[in-house]
C-alpha cells in the first residue's frame, strides 16, 4: 500500500512539475524579451522611419515595419473573411452532405498545418507567373493562403456548436435557410467568429516565412498595392543578424513591440468573447 501511494505521489509531482515547467518557460520568454527590449525602446523607434544608415546604428525607427505589418495582416484578414465566412457556412449540414463536410474539414486541417514557407514559395511562383514584383499585394496574397484554412476551420467550429433547436425553430416558422443563417447562426456564433478573426490576425502579424519573398522589405511606406512593404518580424530578423550592438538592441525592442501586439490581440479577443457571449442564447 505504501509503495502504491508513493508511486502515486511521485506521479502527481511529475505532472505538476511539468505544468510548472511550461509556465516557467512562458515567463522566461516574456521576461527575456521585455527586459532586453524595454531599455532599448525609444519613441523614435516606434514613430520614425529608418533614416539613411539606420542599419549601421544611425537614427530612425521601425515605423515602416510596424505599419507594414498592420497593412499586410489587415489586408489578408479582409481577403480571408470574405472567403472564409461563406465557406464555413457552406460546411454546415444545412448546405453540405456530412461526408463531404468531413472530408473538407480534414483537408483544411492538413492545410492549416502546412508550413507557411511553403505558402510563401507558392505565392512567389504565382507572382512570377503574373509578373508581379515583391509587393504589398503579393504579401497579402501569400498571407491570405496561410490564414484561410485556419479561419474557415475556427469559424466552422463555432457555427457548428449552435444548438439544433435554434436552427430548426426559424425553419419551422417558414423562414428560408439564408434567413435562418443570418438571424440565428451568425448572431449566435458572432463572439466565436470574432475570436477566429483575431486569431488569424495574430498569426498574420507574427508570420515571417510567408512574406519573406512575397512582400519584400523597404525603408519606406508603400504608396500603392504594387510597392514592396516592410514587416515587423522581418525587421527583427534582419536587425538581430547585424554585428553592431546598437542594431541588435533595436532588434530586442522591435521584438518587444511585436510580442506586445500579440499579447494585446490575445487579451482583447478574450475580453470581447466574454462580453459578446452574454448576448447569445445557450
Amino acid at each position: 500500500m505504501r509503495n502504491r501511494k508513493m508511486k502515486d505521489a511521485l506521479f502527481y509531482w511529475t505532472m505538476l512539475g511539468s505544468l510548472a515547467f511550461i509556465l516557467a518557460v512562458f515567463s522566461v520568454i516574456l521576461i527575456v524579451v521585455f527586459s532586453k527590449g524595454f531599455p532599448a525602446l525609444r519613441w523614435s523607434l516606434i514613430f520614425q522611419l529608418p533614416k539613411s544608415g539606420y542599419y549601421l546604428g544611425q537614427d530612425g525607427g521601425v515605423a515602416n515595419a510596424i505599419l507594414g505589418t498592420l497593412y499586410l495582416s489587415s489586408g489578408a484578414v479582409l481577403v480571408s473573411i470574405i472567403l472564409a465566412l461563406p465557406a464555413a457556412i457552406a460546411l454546415q449540414k444545412d448546405y453540405t452532405s456530412p461526408r463531404f463536410a468531413q472530408f473538407t474539414r480534414l483537408i483544411l486541417d492538413v492545410l492549416w498545418g502546412t508550413p507557411s514557407i511553403v505558402y510563401g514559395a507558392i505565392g512567389f511562383a504565382i507572382m512570377v507567373y503574373l509578373g508581379i514584383r515583391a509587393s504589398l499585394l503579393g504579401g497579402i496574397f501569400a498571407l491570405s493562403l496561410v490564414m484561410l484554412p485556419l479561419m474557415i476551420r475556427s469559424m466552422d467550429e463555432v457555427i457548428r456548436i449552435v444548438p439544433e433547436e435554434l436552427r430548426e425553430t426559424p425553419l419551422a416558422l417558414g423562414s428560408t435557410r439564408f434567413e435562418m443563417v443570418r438571424a440565428v447562426l451568425l448572431k449566435q456564433a458572432f463572439p466565436g467568429i470574432l475570436t477566429a478573426v483575431l486569431l488569424a490576425l495574430g498569426r498574420g502579424i507574427g508570420d515571417a516565412a510567408s512574406v519573406l519573398f512575397t512582400a519584400g522589405f523597404t525603408d519606406n511606406l508603400p504608396g500603392s498595392l504594387m510597392d514592396p512593404v516592410a514587416s515587423l518580424p522581418l525587421a527583427v530578423f534582419f536587425q538581430i543578424g547585424s554585428p553592431l550592438k546598437e542594431v541588435q538592441q533595436r532588434a530586442y525592442a522591435s521584438a518587444m513591440i511585436l510580442l506586445f501586439l500579440i499579447l494585446v490581440i490575445n487579451i482583447v479577443s478574450r475580453i470581447l468573447e466574454k462580453r459578446f457571449t452574454r448576448h447569445t442564447i445557450r
Partner: peptide, 23 residues
C-alpha cells in the same frame, strides 16, 4: 491556464528565435 498556453502558442516564431539566440 488557457490564456497563457494560447499566448505561448501564438508567440511569433521570430521572437522564439531571438530568445533562442540570447538564452
Amino acid at each position: 491556464l488557457r490564456l497563457p498556453i494560447d499566448i505561448l502558442a501564438g508567440v511569433p516564431s521570430v521572437v522564439f528565435g531571438l530568445v533562442g539566440v540570447i538564452v
